[in-house]
C-alpha cells in the first residue's frame, strides 16, 4: 500500500504543482492574485472536451485548449486589468475585478452549459494502467507528472536564460524602471498572461482526463488548494511551487492512508498557516520571480 500511496501522492502533488506554476508566475510578474486563473483551468477542460466531442484526438485537443485558454487569459487581462493599471488604481481594485469576473464567468458558464459533471469520451487515451509490485499508474498520471516537471524546468530556464525572462524578472523587480530601460511592459504582460492561461488550460485538460470529471467549478476548488501551494513554495517562486505541490500531495495521500481521510484536506491549509508563522516567504525563503 505504501508504494501506491506514494504514487497517488506524487500524481496529486504534480497536479497541484502544474496548476500552481502559472498561478505563482502571474503573481511574481504581474503582482496580482488573479482569481480568474481558476477559470482558465475550467475553460481549458471544456475547450478540450468540445474538441474531442467533435472528433479531435487528445494530441490535438490539448494544445488547442491550451492556446485558446492562453488567448482568453490575454483578453481578460486586457479587458479587466490594463485599465486599472493605467489609472494606477489601488491594488485591491484589481483583486476585486478578478473576483467579480470569476463570479461572472463561473456562473455564466454554468448557465450556458449546465453544472452537470461531464467527462472526456471513453477510450480517448489508453486507460488501462501499468501495474507493477501490486501498484498501478496510468498513462494520464505519467503525463501529469512529466508535464509538471518539464514545465517547471522550462519556466525556470526561460526566466534565467532568455531576454524575455530577463525582462520578466526586471518587471517583477520594478515595472517603472523596467519601462525606462526600454522594456515593452505591455508586450511582456501579454506574454505572461498567455503563458499562464495556457498552463492553466493544459492542466485543466490533464486533470479533467485523470479524474474523469469536468465541471464549471473545478477551477475554484483547485484555486483554493493553489493558494496553499504558492504560499508554501513562496509567492512567485516557480521551483518552490513544484516542490510545495509535491509535498502537499504526498502528505495528503499519506494522511489519508495512515491517519484518517478526515484530515486529508486540512494538510494543505495547515501547512499554509504554519508556513506563514515560521517561514513567511515560503519554504525556500525566496520571495519572487526575480530570484527564480
Amino acid at each position: 500500500m505504501l508504494l501506491q500511496q506514494i504514487i497517488n501522492g506524487i500524481v496529486a502533488g504534480s497536479a497541484y504543482a502544474l496548476f500552481a506554476l502559472g498561478f505563482t508566475l502571474t503573481f511574481g510578474v504581474l503582482k496580482i492574485v488573479n482569481l480568474t486563473y481558476g477559470f482558465y483551468f475550467s475553460a481549458g477542460a471544456y475547450l478540450a472536451l468540445f474538441a474531442t466531442l467533435h472528433g479531435a484526438p487528445i494530441t490535438l485537443a490539448l494544445p488547442f485548449a491550451a492556446i485558446a485558454a492562453g488567448f482568453i487569459a490575454v483578453f481578460l487581462d486586457s479587458a479587466l486589468l490594463s485599465r486599472l493599471r493605467r489609472q494606477q488604481a489601488p491594488e485591491l481594485a484589481s483583486l476585486m475585478v478578478t473576483l467579480g469576473a470569476t463570479l461572472f464567468l463561473y456562473t455564466g458558464m454554468t448557465a450556458l452549459i449546465g453544472s452537470e459533471i461531464q467527462r472526456f469520451p471513453l477510450g480517448l487515451i489508453e486507460s488501462a494502467p501499468f501495474r507493477f509490485n501490486g501498484a498501478s499508474i496510468s498513462l494520464t498520471q505519467i503525463a501529469i507528472v512529466m508535464t509538471a516537471g518539464l514545465l517547471a524546468a522550462g519556466l525556470i530556464g526561460v526566466l534565467r536564460a532568455t531576454r524575455t525572462g530577463l525582462a520578466m524578472r526586471a518587471m517583477a523587480e520594478n515595472p517603472q524602471a523596467g519601462e525606462l530601460m526600454g522594456i515593452d511592459t505591455g508586450a511582456i504582460m501579454r506574454r505572461v498572461s498567455f503563458l499562464c492561461g495556457a498552463i492553466a488550460g493544459a492542466s485543466g485538460v490533464l486533470i479533467g482526463l485523470e479524474h474523469n470529471a469536468i465541471t464549471p467549478y473545478m477551477g475554484e476548488t483547485m484555486a483554493l488548494k493553489g493558494f496553499a501551494v504558492i504560499i508554501l513554495g513562496g509567492l512567485g517562486d516557480v521551483g518552490g511551487a513544484l516542490i510545495a505541490g509535491l509535498l502537499i500531495g504526498l502528505l495528503e495521500a499519506l494522511t489519508a492512508g495512515y491517519i484518517s481521510s478526515i484530515y486529508k484536506d486540512a494538510v494543505g491549509f495547515l501547512l499554509l498557516v504554519l508556513t506563514l508563522w515560521a517561514r513567511p516567504f515560503g519554504l525556500f525563503g525566496r520571495a519572487s520571480v526575480r530570484r527564480a
Binding site: 500511496q5 486533470i207 479524474h211 467549478y217 476548488t221 495528503e252 495521500a253 494522511t255 489519508a256 486529508k264
Partner: peptide, 11 residues
Amino acid sequence: KDTDFSAQLTK
C-alpha cells in the same frame, strides 16, 4: 468537491 479518491481507495 473532491475528484481524487485514490488515497482512500488504496487504503
